[in-house]
Structures are given as structure tokens and as C-alpha cells.
């Protein structure tokens, strides 16, 4: 019951962020992203957010110019996967303050960081928004401290 992969796709078909929780060969990854990009970009706005793809289910959601795409096992709960996406977006929104595609492009480290605190190895690690943000905030602080140390040294 784990998430197999998650990636962010821009409307132009560029991958903005990708996380693979399964051991998949590079070639296969390329194939999956290509196929899903064409499939999902061609879907209309009012269509259902769940796709059956191979033996999996793909849950996706569009936020402004970005598609958030999640691959889950076919027996898993689709709506919750959809809400994980939403939770992720909420958290990024809080972190960056009105998140947009450019934030993710330039601050990709932070986006990965939030994702890592939310999901670990494809399993939900923490569903509380506050807890995740607290962790990420802490890490940022640590980083600032490091920089301060460096300047002082």
C-alpha cells in the first residue's frame, strides 16, 4: 500500500520534481514519464483524476501550471492519494508563501525536503501539516546556523 512514484509535470511537459520509491531502471523511468506525460496532458479539465495505467493506478491533480502525478497500487485508496497531493501543495504553499512553479524550480531542495518529511520510502510518515513544517523549519535553522558558523570561522 505504498506510493510507487511521484512527479511534477509542467504544462509544457517538463519534469519539475520526481521521486521514485521503487527500484525502476532509468530506461523504464523515462518510459513511464513519457507515456504519462502524453496521457495526462491530453486529458481535459473536468475529467476524473484517476487513471488505470499498467497494473497501477495513477492519481493526478493540476495546480495552476503544474500537474502532480502519483502512482499507487491498484488496490490502494485513490482519494487519499489525491489528498496527499493536496497536503503536499498546502505545505509548500505555507513554506514558500503562495507557491508557484518558479519556487519549485529554484527552491527544489526545499520541495524535496518537505516531500521527504511527508513520505518516506513511499509510506506516509507524518500526516500532520504542522509537524512536517516544524521539521523543515528546524532544518532550515540548522542550515542557517551552519552558514553563520562558517562566516564566523
Amino acid at each position: 500500500m505504498s506510493i510507487k512514484y511521484l512527479f511534477l509535470l509542467s504544462r509544457q511537459g517538463k519534469i519539475r520534481l520526481a521521486k521514485w520509491y521503487d527500484t525502476i531502471s532509468q530506461k523504464e523511468k523515462g518510459k513511464i514519464t513519457r507515456e504519462l506525460s502524453t496521457l495526462i496532458l491530453s486529458r481535459r479539465a473536468k475529467m476524473c483524476n484517476v487513471l488505470e495505467y499498467k497494473d497501477m493506478k495513477i492519481v493526478y491533480r493540476r495546480y495552476a501550471s503544474l500537474f502532480f502525478i502519483v502512482g499507487i497500487e491498484s488496490g490502494d485508496n485513490e482519494l487519499l492519494a489525491l489528498e496527499i497531493i493536496h497536503r503536499f501543495v498546502e505545505q509548500m504553499d505555507k513554506m514558500y508563501g503562495n507557491v508557484c512553479e518558479l519556487d519549485i524550480i529554484f527552491g527544489f531542495d526545499k520541495a524535496y525536503h518537505i516531500l521527504d518529511e511527508l513520505l518516506l520510502d513511499g509510506y506516509i510518515q507524518e500526516s500532520s501539516k504542522k509537524e512536517v513544517l516544524r521539521r523543515v523549519g528546524q532544518q532550515d535553522e540548522l542550515e542557517n546556523m551552519d552558514e553563520l558558523d562558517q562566516i564566523l570561522a
Binding site: 500500500m1 505504498s2 518516506l120 509510506y123 506516509i124 510518515q125 507524518e126 500526516s127 500532520s128 509537524e131
Partner: peptide, 13 residues
């Protein structure tokens, strides 16, 4: 801690 509960479900399974 609910976070611990949810994260340990795969392990328990």
C-alpha cells in the same frame, strides 16, 4: 503519537 502509528503500519503488516 499518530505520526508514529501511521509510519509503523507497513512494519506491522
Amino acid at each position: 503519537d499518530y505520526g508514529v502509528s501511521i509510519a509503523s503500519i507497513p512494519l506491522i503488516q
